Deep mutational scan, measured.
Amino acid sequence: TLFEALYDYEARTEDDLSFHKGEKFQILNSSEGDWWEARSLTTGETGYIPSIYLAPV
C-alpha cells in the first residue's frame, strides 16, 4: 500500500525524512508506533516519518 503526505514536514533529527504535501511513500516498517520507516517515491530517500501526516492512496 502506498501512502501520500497530507502536509509538509521538516525533519527534526537525522533519522527523520523531510517531505512535501502530496509526496508518495512506500512504507518499509510500520511496527515502531506512530513513526514509520518509509521510502519517498519522489526522492528515493528513506527515513522516519510521522504516520499521522499520511493517508493511504
Score class of each variant (00 low, 15 high):
residue 5 A to K: 00
residue 56 P to V: 09
residue 56 P to Q: 09
residue 2 L to T: 08
residue 10 E to I: 14
residue 17 L to R: 03
residue 51 S to K: 14
residue 3 F to S: 02
residue 11 A to W: 02
residue 17 L to C: 03
residue 32 E to P: 09
residue 23 E to Y: 05
residue 40 S to E: 02
residue 51 S to A: 14
residue 46 T to P: 01
residue 46 T to C: 08
residue 2 L to V: 13
residue 2 L to Y: 11
residue 55 A to R: 13
residue 47 G to V: 05
residue 14 E to S: 13
residue 6 L to F: 04
residue 3 F to A: 04
residue 16 D to Q: 15
residue 47 G to R: 04
residue 6 L to I: 10
residue 28 L to D: 02
residue 7 Y to Q: 11
residue 33 G to N: 11
residue 21 K to C: 07
residue 29 N to Q: 08
residue 5 A to G: 03
residue 45 E to L: 15
residue 34 D to N: 09
residue 45 E to T: 08
residue 47 G to L: 05
residue 22 G to Q: 02
residue 2 L to A: 05
residue 27 I to C: 03
residue 19 F to M: 13
residue 21 K to P: 03
residue 3 F to Y: 15
residue 19 F to K: 00
residue 49 I to M: 03
residue 5 A to I: 02
residue 45 E to V: 10
residue 12 R to H: 10
residue 32 E to F: 12
residue 10 E to S: 11
residue 42 T to N: 09
residue 57 V to E: 06
residue 22 G to R: 03
residue 24 K to M: 14
residue 51 S to C: 11
residue 18 S to W: 03
residue 49 I to E: 00
residue 55 A to E: 07
residue 12 R to D: 09
residue 38 A to P: 00
residue 15 D to R: 15
residue 35 W to F: 11
residue 51 S to D: 02
residue 7 Y to A: 12
residue 12 R to F: 08
residue 3 F to I: 01
residue 41 L to F: 07
residue 2 L to R: 05
residue 45 E to G: 08
residue 13 T to C: 15
residue 27 I to V: 10
residue 41 L to T: 07
residue 29 N to E: 07
residue 11 A to D: 02
residue 52 I to N: 14
residue 48 Y to V: 08
residue 21 K to I: 08
residue 7 Y to L: 09
residue 16 D to T: 15
residue 2 L to S: 04
residue 14 E to V: 12
residue 2 L to E: 06
residue 12 R to E: 11
residue 57 V to P: 04
residue 37 E to K: 13
residue 3 F to M: 08
residue 16 D to R: 15
residue 23 E to G: 02
residue 45 E to Q: 15
residue 34 D to R: 07
residue 30 S to Q: 12
residue 36 W to D: 00
residue 29 N to W: 08
residue 34 D to F: 14
residue 47 G to K: 04
residue 33 G to C: 10
residue 54 L to I: 09
residue 43 T to W: 02
residue 31 S to D: 12
residue 4 E to T: 09
residue 16 D to V: 15
residue 14 E to M: 12
residue 46 T to Q: 10
residue 33 G to H: 12
residue 48 Y to I: 09
residue 32 E to H: 14
residue 20 H to G: 08
residue 55 A to T: 13
residue 10 E to R: 11
residue 18 S to L: 02
residue 15 D to E: 13
residue 45 E to I: 10
residue 33 G to M: 12
residue 57 V to N: 05
residue 35 W to D: 04
residue 30 S to T: 13
residue 21 K to E: 05
residue 16 D to N: 12
residue 2 L to I: 15
residue 2 L to N: 05
residue 9 Y to H: 06
residue 39 R to C: 07
residue 31 S to H: 10
residue 39 R to L: 10
residue 19 F to L: 07
residue 29 N to S: 11
residue 1 T to N: 12
residue 50 P to K: 13
residue 50 P to H: 14
residue 46 T to M: 09
residue 57 V to T: 08
residue 1 T to P: 11
residue 31 S to T: 12
residue 57 V to H: 06
residue 3 F to K: 01
residue 52 I to F: 12
